[in-house]
Design a protein around this nucleic acid. Structure first.
Ligand code: ZN
Length: 277
DNA sequence: AGGTGGACCTATCCGC
DNA sequence: TGCGGATA
DNA sequence: GTCCACC
């Protein structure tokens, strides 16, 4: 499930496409959840040069000459792959964009939740994107932005940092890990969090995400539906996870048992001792 | 306002 | 081994 | 991972 670090790792791998032009579009096979309208994808990319790739939260934005923009969201199992031997997974290929120099961008997605939207002659696809808060890796993100959007609201801390207007790019894994690092209970109402605790949370989030990017992202299992970078390689941050997926195991800090509880239909892992209410 | 549960899909993992 | 159920 | 309908 690509979150900020995984999307960032993919983006960095795709930078080799910058400066190349699109020579063809191909949609291997139909099926449920059509990921993109081929007509508009073609008119937004064909014969155009890729000028820039950027990330907004978990979205990837490709700017082609024109300018025309194309935006991808990978949801749970989407992948963006460069030219390579992925023939055994070809049944999950959704769209293949060919570039000059024989380069390719392959959108592959096992669960078919991911999608791609493009600019048309008159409208920018940015208008379809949600609002984003300050990127956690940018200077405008911090204790101030967190406590500001918390105000006197009563929602639980974990739900709060999963809000893309608060910490765009954070998903379930990194929400759990960030709260553990900050020593904060996921179920605490945000209006009880103090200034020092916001500082600690902001720092935890930033450091965590940078470290995860350094490790090439998190790859939970070995199946194809798990994360890999643009060259098909897994990440290594799973070795550094301290609470996620560790129910019943010993807390790395206090040796007590890590517990898991559902919150918002998603598993929430925490140490009851290190993260008291 | 905030929380829950389902919908969208397919694969994998676990226990019986 | 095969199957339902839970989870990603 | 996100959206939406419902309490
Ligand atoms: Zn602990």
């Amino acid at each position: 499930m690509p979150e900020l670090p995984e999307v960032e790792v993919i983006l960095r791998g795709l930078l080799v496409l910058k400066g190349l032009a699109v020579t063809g579009i191909e949609a291997p096979r139909p099926g449920p959840n059509t990921p993109v309208d081929l007509e508009s994808l073609s008119s937004a990319t064909l014969e155009r040069k890729l000028e820039e790739i950027e990330r907004r939260g978990k979205y990837l934005l490709f700017r082609f000459s024109g300018p025309r923009e194309v935006v991808f969201h990978l949801k749970m199992t989407g992948k963006l792959l460069l030219r390579g031997d992925f023939s055994e997974y070809a049944r999950y290929h959704r769209v293949i964009i060919s570039f000059t120099r024989g380069q390719k961008l392959i959108f592959n997605d096992v669960r078919r939740f991911g999608f791609c939207i493009c600019d048309s002659n008159d409208t920018s696809c940015r208008t379809c994107l949600p609002e984003f808060g300050p990127d956690p890796l940018s200077p405008s993100f911090g204790a101030g932005s967190l406590s500001g959007s918390a105000g006197d609201r009563r929602l639980k801390l974990k739900n709060f940092i999963l809000d893309q207007k608060v910490a765009p790019g954070i998903g379930n894994i990194y929400a759990n890990e960030a709260l553990f690092r900050a020593g904060l209970n996921p179920f605490r109402p945000v209006n009880t969090v103090g200034a020092g605790e916001w500082e600690s949370l902001a720092r935890s989030i930033r450091e965590l995400l940078l470290e995860a990017i350094d490790y090439g992202g998190t790859t939970l299992g070995r199946g194809w539906s798990h994360f890999c970078n643009a060259r098909g390689e897994p990440g290594r941050f799973q070795e550094r996870l301290m609470v996620y997926g560790r129910e019943g195991e010993a807390c790395v800090r206090c040796d007590n048992e890590i517990r898991s509880m559902p919150l918002n239909n998603r598993s929430t892992f925490f140490c009851p001792l290190c993260q008291e209410v």
